[in-house]
Amino acid sequence: MRVLVVSGTVGALSADDSAQAIAAGWREADPAAQLAAVPMAGAGLGFDRALADLLGPGVELSVAAVADDSAAPVITVLRTAQTAVVTATPASGEEVWCPGASSEPIGRAIRAVIEDDRPQRLILAITPGAAHDAGAGLLRGLGALADGELGAGTTALAEIDRIDLRRVRPLLDGLELILVVPTAERDPHLLGLRGLSAQRGRAAGMDPAAILAADAAIERFAAALTAAGGVPEAASAAGSGACGFAYSLLALGAEPTTGPEAIRRLAGLEQSLRQSDLVVVGCDSLDFASRGGEVLAAATAWAGDLLIPVLVIADTVQIGNREMRALGVEAAHAVRPSAPALGNAQPGELGAVDLQRLARRVARSWRG
């Protein structure tokens, strides 16, 4: 039997530790099984660690220096011989409305990575944070110039008519640029009633006049970037409003994707998937709210296309068989039969041995 194990974080265990524990337990019950274990993660916390574990020896992981500012993101940099991964997550862990926040620190980090030791491929993994400047600050960090202020947040974009990308083009020339965003950020548009400013402004309870002004400022910036040679279709594309600043990268030709899809590509999982008899997914919780998270959603989509059954091994499972089948899951098994009582959750108590023991028990029923 050929079994592909993909796992995100489970409790306090990393994605790789979880995948390896599940694979070890399965192997104990079915020594003849052919197993592949792959750590998986969505954009954000855990993505860089999953990639580091996947790519193995020779990986360098560091935290880039950023301003001591609650609106500034935490930036990590992962390097291999040919690939650099820049991950930006909000320092506060929350998305906020901050018209003056800039994505410039991310642009500076990208520029430093390229100039220090130019990779063949650069992956930027982002999540929603304070900046919603459509990536104007990021362009400034890369070296772009304009007739207005690119790094002062959304409001300042209303003064921009011309952008100069002559220092940015050589920096990115010949570089494979991949933009990784959360799955939920694949659809938001940049402009209009369902655009970036409208969605964030309404969520923050902002005055409609301020929302309209921000939208108009971003529209003006987008027109200037298109005139400077940006991809014309980027401003109207689904996902152009992703995370508040994805637009400028799409306008520069970045290829958008999700964390699981990026890892699938880097790990070369296509052949493993096609040869698999079963896909086993590790996740923290399978419930109505999370539905197992990005990793499970991606795995069920891949397996469903190939008519491969999917099993879930999780810390907790809180949905029934009907809901599982609707998600594309054949069966789900929990380390703990129900969620810990409110206020008593202790995810650190879950250990690799618990996943290994559960995987061993599940594998016995699937041993062919």
Rank of each mutant, 00 (worst) to 15 (best):
D147T: 02
C98D: 15
A130L: 01
R169I: 03
C98K: 12
I123N: 02
G44A: 12
R167N: 09
A43I: 11
V86I: 15
L138N: 04
L51C: 15
D147N: 14
A84F: 02
P99K: 05
H132A: 13
S62C: 01
I75A: 05
A67D: 11
E149L: 12
A130P: 06
G151S: 15
G46K: 03
E115I: 02
I123E: 04
A65H: 11
V168E: 12
L177W: 03
L150P: 02
A125Q: 08
I114A: 03
P105L: 09
V77C: 13
G137Y: 06
E149M: 09
W97Y: 13
D164M: 03
R49K: 06
I114H: 01
H132K: 00
A109G: 11
G153H: 00
R167T: 13
E104A: 11
E95L: 12
S103T: 08
R167P: 01
W97R: 06
P119Y: 08
E115D: 13
H132R: 00
V63Q: 14
G153T: 04
T80S: 14
D48I: 09
L165G: 04
L165M: 10
L55W: 03
P128K: 11
G129A: 11
V113I: 02
L175I: 10
E159R: 13
L145W: 02
G151R: 08
V66C: 13
L122I: 02
A136Q: 10
Q120S: 08
E159L: 09
V77S: 05
A50V: 11
S92Y: 04
L55I: 06
D69K: 05
A84C: 13
P105A: 12
E60W: 01
V85D: 04
D164R: 04
S92R: 11
T76Q: 12
A130W: 06
I106V: 05
E60H: 07
D69G: 06
A109M: 10
G135I: 08
R118S: 00
P90D: 12
V113P: 14
A156N: 12
G56Y: 14
A125L: 06
E94C: 00
S92P: 02
L45N: 14
D117R: 09
R79I: 10
V77Y: 10
L175H: 05
A65W: 02
G44N: 10
A125V: 09
S62K: 11
G141Y: 00
V74S: 10
V63K: 09
A50Q: 06
E95K: 05
A72N: 05
P128Y: 09
G93S: 09
G129V: 03
L78T: 12
A152E: 11
G46I: 01
R118V: 00
S102A: 12
R121V: 04
D161G: 15
G151M: 00
L54F: 02
Q82F: 02
A146W: 06
D147F: 07
D161S: 15
A112V: 01
E94W: 06
T83S: 04
R140A: 13
T80Q: 07
L157Y: 06
G107A: 10
E95N: 08
G46C: 01
I106H: 00
P119N: 10
L78D: 11
G135H: 02
T155N: 09
A88S: 14
E149V: 03
R169H: 07
R111N: 08
P57K: 00
A152V: 03
